[in-house]
């Protein structure tokens, strides 16, 4: 465990909590893509099946349980409790265009052709693109609430910090996981445009709105 990995995990946790609190406090999930949140719930479910097969550390187990619980709570709030506020008309990204190719790729390119490993690979690939329905929704409506942009910032920052963590681990531990690194690079690149808008607009006190 190095500082980049730890701050990456905490940044991920912050993003998840920010989103939950935003929905809970405002009693509304307006502007949030339920599809992205469903994909993240699927990501955590398929990745953390190893909770049943291997123990890494108390930290590892606790964080996995928290991520899974929070992602299911978020999906529950969007599709059940605050369903009336869910902006389904703008959440029109076709998720099958992500899930099907990612599913196929995880069968073809993996570390080991075993059920658990294929599901882990699927979750890594799917996570890298799971934010696309949310970004698509923002591009469609042309704006995002400031709190939603904070959520996206921490979610993007998390994978960027993991990239530094992987460089660190390569040099100091000889650890290198090509699948995670390539997917992590793709994932981080998808946030670059958003990072630019976040720094140039949101951090200067302006609302994030895109030119028509």
């Amino acid at each position: 465990m190095n500082i980049f990995r730890l701050t990456g995990d905490l940044s991920h946790l912050a993003a998840i909590i920010i989103l939950l609190l935003k929905i809970w406090k405002t009693r509304s999930c307006a502007g949030i893509s339920g599809k992205s949140q469903l994909l993240f719930a699927l990501v955590f479910t398929t990745r953390y099946l190893d909770l049943f097969t291997s123990f890494i550390s108390l930290y590892n187990t606790s964080m996995k349980l928290i991520y899974v619980a929070c992602s299911y709570a978020t999906v529950y709030l969007i599709y059940m409790k605050f369903k009336a506020t869910y902006d389904g008309n703008h959440d029109t990204f076709r998720v099958e265009f992500l899930v099907v190719p990612v599913g196929g790729l995880s069968f073809l390119v993996n570390h080991d052709f075993s059920p658990l490993e294929i599901l882990w690979t699927f979750s890594i690939y799917l996570e890298s693109v799971a934010i696309l329905p949310q970004l698509f929704m923002i591009s469609k409506t042309g704006e995002a609430e400031t709190i939603t942009t904070h959520y996206l910032f921490f979610l993007g920052l998390y994978r960027a910090l993991y990239l530094i963590n992987w460089i660190w681990r390569y040099y100091f531990e000889g650890f290198f996981d090509l699948i995670a690194v390539v997917a992590g690079v793709v994932q981080t690149i998808l946030y670059c445009d958003f990072f630019y808008l976040y720094v140039t607009k949101v951090l200067k006190g302006k609302k994030l709105s895109l030119p028509a």
Binding site: D9, R47, D50, S54, I56, Y67, F175
Partner: peptide, 10 residues
Amino acid sequence: SQKVFKHDEL
């Protein structure tokens, strides 16, 4: 390397 099969990251 078999290392990667035991995924110790989140």
